[in-house]
Amino acid sequence: MSRSRLLALLPLTAALSGCDLVVLNPSGDVASQQGQLVVVSTLLMLLIIVPVMALTVLFAWRYRQSNTKARYEPEWDHSTQLELVIWAAPLLIIIVLGALTWMTTHLLDPYRPIERIAANRPVPAEAKTLEIDVVALDWKWLFLYPEYGIAAVNEVAAPVDRPIRFNITSSSVMNSFYIPALAGQIYAMPGMQTQLHAVINQPGAYKGFSANYSGAGFSGMRFTFHGMVDGGFERWVSEVKAGGGALDRNGYLQLERPSENEPVRRYGTVEAGLFKAILNMCVEPGKMCMNDMAAIDARGGLGMAGIHITMPLLYDKHARRGAVFGPEPRDVIGICTVAELVPELVPDLVADLAAPEPAPELAAPLLGAGLPRPSTP
Results as ranks from 00 to 15, higher is better:
Ser2Leu: 10
Arg5Gly: 02
Leu12Ser: 05
Ala14Phe: 14
Ala15Ile: 15
Leu16Gln: 13
Asp20Trp: 10
Ala31Arg: 08
Gln33Gly: 08
Leu43Ser: 07
Leu46Asn: 08
Val57Gln: 14
Ser66Ala: 13
Asn67Cys: 02
Thr68Cys: 04
Lys69Ile: 10
Pro74Asn: 06
Gln81Leu: 06
Ile95Cys: 11
Leu100Gly: 05
Trp102His: 14
Trp102Pro: 00
Met103Pro: 02
Thr104Val: 06
Thr104Phe: 13
Arg112Ser: 06
Ile117His: 02
Asn120Val: 06
Glu126Cys: 02
Asp133Arg: 14
Asp138Thr: 03
Phe143Leu: 03
Pro146Phe: 07
Tyr148Glu: 14
Ala158Thr: 09
Pro159Phe: 00
Asp161Met: 08
Arg165Ile: 10
Phe166Ile: 09
Ile168Tyr: 14
Ser170Met: 02
Ser171Pro: 00
Val173Ala: 11
Leu182Trp: 00
Leu182Asp: 01
Gly184Thr: 09
Gln185Trp: 07
Leu196Thr: 01
His197Gln: 13
Gly208Gln: 03
Ser210Cys: 15
Asn212Ser: 06
Tyr213Val: 09
Gly220Gln: 10
Gly220Pro: 00
Thr224Ala: 06
Gly227Glu: 03
Met228Asp: 09
Asp230Gly: 07
Gly231Thr: 14
Val237Lys: 10
Val240Gln: 03
Gly243Val: 05
Leu247Glu: 04
Pro258Asp: 03
Glu262Gly: 01
Arg266Glu: 04
Tyr267Gly: 02
Asn280Lys: 01
Met281Pro: 01
Glu284Ala: 14
Cys289Phe: 14
Asn291Pro: 01
Met293Thr: 15
Thr310Lys: 15
Lys317Trp: 07
His318Pro: 01
Arg320Cys: 02
Ala323Glu: 11
Ile335Tyr: 04
Cys336Gly: 12
Asp348Val: 07
Pro360Gln: 03
